Simulated scan of single mutants.
Amino acid sequence: MDVNLPIVDREQIAQLIPQRDPIVMVDTLWSFGQTQVVAGLTVMGNNILADAGVLQEAGLIEHMAQTVALHTGYDFFCKGLVAPVGYIGSIKEIVIYRLPRVSDKIVSTAHILQEFMGVTLVEVETTLNGEVLAKGQMKTVVAQ
């Protein structure tokens, strides 16, 4: 895969994360660095975690977690490795101010606070046109 950022092609995104439809909650990789990743999602009406025209809390949190997965997957891709399977190890202090609606284009920025032996501690903030929708901390774990 020849990659230039941003990545907006769903097939390229699918190569970077272990999730598959209908649970894919990222559709854009805006930027990548060793300690930060920025990912996006356009909320579609057929999203499995949308109801009554709104992406539900679980969908927003899953989008935040998949932003972290995209960081890990792109890092592995850059090293010539396959994206690993992982899971949310813990969620701490997630605050949701507002839920995005169908057709909204949300952006999550994850700052890597610590990464050790497959465990990544991050602060994640999700915005819509500069408005903070949600923020918090989570740990993700690469499955062994």
Rank of each mutant, 00 (worst) to 15 (best):
I7Y: 03
H63D: 03
H63T: 12
I88D: 01
Q15V: 05
V119P: 01
I48C: 06
E62A: 07
A50D: 01
Q56A: 07
A143R: 13
R10T: 04
V54F: 04
V85G: 06
I23D: 01
D2I: 14
D75I: 01
P100Y: 09
T67Q: 04
E57C: 07
G89W: 10
T42R: 14
I91R: 07
D75V: 05
Q56C: 05
T72D: 10
L41W: 02
T67N: 11
S90M: 12
K105C: 13
M117P: 00
T42I: 11
E131F: 11
G59F: 05
H71S: 10
F77G: 01
K139F: 06
D75P: 00
L81P: 04
E62I: 02
L29T: 02
V142Y: 05
L81H: 14
I106P: 04
C78F: 02
E93I: 00
V142M: 12
K139V: 03
T42Q: 13
F76W: 14
P100L: 08
I23K: 01
F32K: 00
L128I: 04
P18Q: 09
P100T: 03
V38S: 10
W30F: 14
F76H: 14
M44I: 00
N4P: 00
A39K: 00
I48D: 01
G73V: 08
H111N: 11
D27M: 08
I94T: 09
P6H: 11
A110G: 05
Q114T: 09
G73N: 06
F76Y: 15
V141S: 07
S31H: 04
L81N: 13
V119T: 14
H111G: 02
L41S: 02
Q34P: 08
L70N: 05
F76D: 09
I106Y: 10
Y87K: 03
L81M: 15
I7M: 11
Q15M: 09
L49M: 13
K92P: 00
V54I: 13
A83I: 05
Q12V: 15
A50P: 02
T28Q: 12
Q56Y: 06
T35Q: 15
G73I: 05
T126Y: 10
Y74Q: 07
V85W: 12
V122T: 13
Q34S: 13
I7W: 10
M64N: 01
L49E: 00
P6G: 11
T42E: 12
T72P: 00
V37Y: 02
P22T: 07
L55E: 01
I7H: 08
L121Y: 07
V68F: 05
V102N: 08
V95K: 14
L128S: 06
V107S: 07
R20M: 03
E115I: 08
E93V: 00
A83R: 08
V141I: 15
D9Q: 13
T28L: 08
R101G: 03
E57I: 01
V85K: 12
M25E: 02
L70Q: 08
V54M: 10
H111Y: 06
D21V: 04
L55W: 04
V8T: 15
T126L: 11
G33D: 14
Q114Y: 13
N129Q: 14
A14L: 13
P22A: 04
S90H: 08
T42Y: 03
D27F: 03
Q19L: 10
K105I: 08
V141N: 06
N46W: 03
D75Y: 13
R101L: 12
S31Y: 05
V132D: 08
H71N: 07
Q36I: 05
V142R: 11
